[in-house]
Simulated assay, not measured.
Amino acid sequence: MKEIRIKDAIIGLGKDKYPLFGSVQYERPAKTNTIVTVQTDNKTVQIPLNQIKLIVFKYDAKTFGFIFNYCLFISDNKSFNLWNRQTKKLTCHELQPNF
């Protein structure tokens, strides 16, 4: 097994819940009941993967990554500036690249 760590992310838990901001780590291969550890500035929570709706993170210096329905998606470079502005507005800082 390999540990996946995303050091700066937005973690969406659902329509009626506030997102979490922090790091995410889990063991691969991930399944619906895989426990994901989310470390925020002031707490650590463990959540089953099936309760996380979306994880948004800066994949590298020019692309964003998204984990949705247990799949990894990478943005195209054309949408980078839009995602960068929107995530900066939401998190009050620019997300740091992970890879």
Results as ranks from 00 to 15, higher is better:
79 S>N: 12
21 F>Y: 14
11 I>S: 03
99 F>Q: 06
5 R>H: 07
15 K>E: 13
46 Q>I: 04
79 S>Q: 10
48 P>S: 04
46 Q>W: 03
86 Q>R: 09
24 V>G: 03
72 L>S: 11
64 F>Y: 15
85 R>G: 09
75 S>M: 09
26 Y>I: 00
74 I>M: 10
37 T>I: 04
86 Q>W: 07
51 Q>V: 04
11 I>G: 04
56 V>P: 07
19 P>A: 08
26 Y>D: 00
35 I>C: 00
52 I>S: 02
2 K>Y: 07
95 L>Q: 01
65 G>Q: 06
6 I>C: 06
27 E>T: 07
13 L>N: 00
38 V>I: 13
32 T>E: 11
61 A>V: 11
63 T>Q: 13
98 N>C: 14
31 K>E: 12
6 I>Q: 01
50 N>R: 10
26 Y>P: 00
73 F>C: 09
35 I>R: 05
69 N>H: 12
49 L>C: 08
17 K>T: 06
59 Y>P: 06
54 L>A: 01
67 I>L: 11
40 T>D: 05
58 K>P: 08
38 V>Q: 00
77 N>R: 10
58 K>D: 05
23 S>R: 06
8 D>L: 05
64 F>I: 02
17 K>H: 07
29 P>R: 01
30 A>Y: 04
83 W>E: 02
53 K>D: 13
91 T>H: 03
83 W>K: 03
17 K>P: 02
61 A>F: 15
78 K>T: 11
59 Y>Q: 10
41 D>M: 09
59 Y>H: 15
93 H>F: 09
41 D>P: 00
8 D>W: 07
67 I>A: 04
67 I>P: 02
77 N>V: 11
83 W>A: 08
55 I>L: 03
8 D>K: 05
81 N>V: 04
39 Q>K: 15
70 Y>W: 10
51 Q>N: 15
41 D>H: 12
11 I>L: 03
14 G>K: 01
97 P>F: 02
56 V>L: 15
60 D>S: 13
67 I>W: 08
69 N>D: 15
76 D>T: 11
62 K>A: 12
62 K>L: 12
75 S>R: 10
31 K>R: 12
45 V>T: 14
